[in-house]
Amino acid sequence: MDILNILKLALGEMLSPTTITFVLCALGLAVHFGFTGLLNFGQAAFAAVGAYGMVISIDTLKLPLFLAVLMGLLCSIIFALILGIPTLRLRADYLAIVTIATAEVFRYFMTTIGFSKVTGGSNGLSQFGAEFWALNPIPEGNYNFGFVSYRADQLYVFMVGWGAVIIGALILRLLMRSPWGRVLKGIREDEDAVRSLGKNVFFYKLQALMIGGVFASIGGMIFVLNLSNVQPQVWTTNFTFTIWSVLLLGGAATILGPIAGGMIFIALISITQGIMGGLVELGLLPFLTQPDIAQIRLLLIGLSLMLLVIFRPQGLFGNKRETQFNV
């Protein structure tokens, strides 16, 4: 078992496009849940709507990439309106039910054969990446950064993706430290109190839903651009719950939390895979075979998340003071 190699792999995974997608989606979910208190269990759908919105704009509407990205964002905003207008006047639980159902509906809709000319059906779409890759300014070749090395295209995605994360995080930081963010936090604590102080709670919740959705859809776009491929079966409830895990791991009402949480979560998966794989290879875990590991490590991660939520509900980067109160 090569510990150094396992760590190297983990480090690579921590900075991978998948992590970027999870981080962006988790940042969006932080706006929804951590700051506004909206229970959104359909974050995968927001990512998917953004991704499909962009891809279909390129593939069917033949729009240039820049406009297609805007279309994707617009789609997720419209999606937020469709979800939010009927449910945000109701209690929080209704949004949870509606989002989880809509996410599944959207996924099945994208799989439907009837629309496969536009959506690609269950095979998805893959002829849309040309312009994105053509924009790569980095010369061909391999780039070494100590532990990790990147090809030019990987470095390109890395820069675009983490650039989006950094810009997004800075915008969120500005927003959450502003009076606007204060209203959101007020809504999280008690929306009737905020209403009684003359704030249009419904509109703020709708804004929060849209902004969180936009973050997720950017995540979704990076995910599909990196693969040059969009497929409906990616955006399952599993995807959503992974994002929830990332958010709760890092800390729901923080901005650093979802970023670090995403990296740690992915690293944990990679390291447990590596170590347990190594142990099985050495015959130290005779009751397990290699294929079992994928399941067992998720089980272990699930267990540690449960422990985390019980003993550190504010997440790794949350404010300690917050947990002194049982509210």
Partner: peptide, 21 residues
């Protein structure tokens, strides 16, 4: 919220302090 903006503000029987602010 519009009522409140007109200058008619209420409080609640069960106090609504925004706990984590």
């Amino acid at each position: 919220y519009k009522v409140a903006r007109l200058g008619m503000i209420r409080t609640f029987q069960l106090t609504k302090a925004l706990s984590l602010l």
